[in-house]
Design a protein around this nucleic acid. Sequence first.
RNA 1: GCUGGCGUAGCUCAACUGGUAGAGCAUCGGAUUUGUAAUCCGAAGGUUAAGGGUUCGAGUCCCCUCGCCAGCUCCA
Length: 646
Amino acid sequence: MSAINVTLPDGQILEFEAGTTVFAVAAKIGPGLAKAALAGRIDGAIVDLRTPLVGDVALEIVTTRDAQGGDVIRHSAEHVMADAVKRLFPAAQVDAGRSDHSEKFQYDFLVDEPFTPEDIERIEKEMQVILAEGVEFEREVVTRDEAASLFRGLGEELKLSRLSDIPDDAEITIFRHGDFIDLCRGPHVNNTKQIGAIKLTGASGTYFRGDESGPKLQRIYGTAFATRKELKSHLARIEEAKKRDHRRVGVELGLFHMDAVAPGSPFYLPKGTALYNELVDFIRSLYPKYGYHEVLTPQLFRSEVFKTSGHYQKFYDDMYWFDGSDEGEELGVKAMNCPGHCHLFSTGKRSYRELPIRWAEFSRLHRNERSGTLNGITRVRSFAQDDGHIFCEPGQVHEEIASFFEMTNEVYEKLGLEGLEMSVSTRPEQFLGDIADWDIAEKNLIEAVETAGYHCNIKEGDAAFYGPKVEADFRDVLGRAWTLATVQIDTAQPGRFGLRYVGRDGGLHQPAMLHRAVLGSLERFIGIYIEHTGGDFPFWLSPIQVLALPIADRHAPRAREIEKSLAIAGIRAETDDRSETLGFRIRDAEKQKIPLTLVIGDEEVEGGTVSPRLRKSKQAMHAMSAEALIEALQSSNAERRMKPLA
RNA sequence: GCUGGCGUAGCUCAACUGGUAGAGCAUCGGAUUUGUAAUCCGAAGGUUAAGGGUUCGAGUCCCCUCGCCAGCUCCA
């Protein structure tokens, strides 16, 4: 046998015989590491412990300390769950597990009856038994025929179908622990005892390969961690998410109301409307700086416009249509602003001198979203975007994207959102335009992202049908990723609408077109933002910014006076002069997330002062004159500051 | 739209296997006049999502419609 060199993360090089497994390397380094080992990593790719090393490699041992160690544990727990199901329901056929184990695991089963909550409990208990048994995982490389006869023997029809999905030239591996066998690439832990803590989190129905015409399967979800403590903190995080749920917080704060009389369409109460308008005003305030002009285009269009844009063909069922007043006239409620903007561009003779044309619009849009996709205000049928379209010369695209990134950063900074991750989504299966145009556009976008200094992730086939897009994802306080800002190149609509401008050369040229939004859907943004902040909005966005609290009835007139001065100064203020104790009203103000309360008693009335108290603070600030306060708050508003008083 | 679950007062939730719908908060009235996260007393509030069925009797069981939730799918 020939020798190979294994380079460890610390630079140390060890010599082994070719064919040595990852686990053997870990064991050689030390028994502690061998016990903690969950998988290996070679060139960033994760490999199973039982993988034989055939050449010189740089190897890293993945343990529970590694973020990916959790993935291995959850993936292994997934097999244990399927094992438990087979033990309790021998007739169940096993389909496939999950590919992304960063948070949870799942398996789909073909069974006669859906699993009941009691079944789930029994399955979880059986999993605990398997963990306690300390069953060893084994990896085996098999031929296609061996795998086929194995699963045929087990009566696993679905597995045979999955087996045929594997490309001809791919190595076929199976993993087994005890009696349970599955087709799997791994990696897996050595022993079920390494799976410290598991929890089944839910069940739902699904379809084989997501095909609604195919067989119905039952899916069970769960999660697992190396230790009980980690599981507990994960479950606590889910609890925290529930507490921050915008559907709950939005109602508690009196921001909006959802009602069966208009499914998927929010009613904004005055406070929610204040928040909404403040966001729109903010974006609008940046438009002069970034060269946008606002336009207002119709809500209803004859269907021809959407036929031209291509939306009629692709999204007919997802739009609202009705008969117009004229015979045979079909009108569509707009679900996007781009066809209107394209049409508007086409109505005049355009010169290169006026490009780039940047048109923005906040109109309400309506989409007939399928009932099952609706979710609070984050997925609705009636919404508005901070939408905009840029028509420019092809050579100006780079600059426009760079400027858009700049605007995005400015917006997010004021909103206190940090840590953007950029990605480019590439051509989907269904698309309009030429492949060559797509290729150029994709390359342009990737370059623009990298020029702006970001790492560029690629989302294969994830683009809209008319062109590739850049997405800015942000992670909220609970670690969840949300896509907010997007900019997309449109390879289709300028051509379909026959858009032209007169170039320097006097000839007619087709403009490049960009779609872009910083916040995206305002409804969705507000929902996400509520969950991220828990309702503790920045001062400038708070629906009620200041609450005046007179101590006794005799102080109420002065409190009202201050409230009025604040309101005149453009600060959203109210007075709470209810016959309740001060403590009660402060508690109420805290629950309402009001950034600043002003206590007004004898001292303040006499001195013409107010005693401000910041949200969440334990003690009052020093009294200050009402005039000084108003001035300070006005500048906080003007600068859109997070806190009312510096 | 599909699969599963759920729907009781404005909100959060009770009501054992079918046997008189109840509490806290919020609301309203009264008392209290308060100095930085809950003052006390009282009142009102419901065709148990809508409709139909089984039953002596239905919040509870069955059917259907609507909505919501978890997923699937979709996301211009």
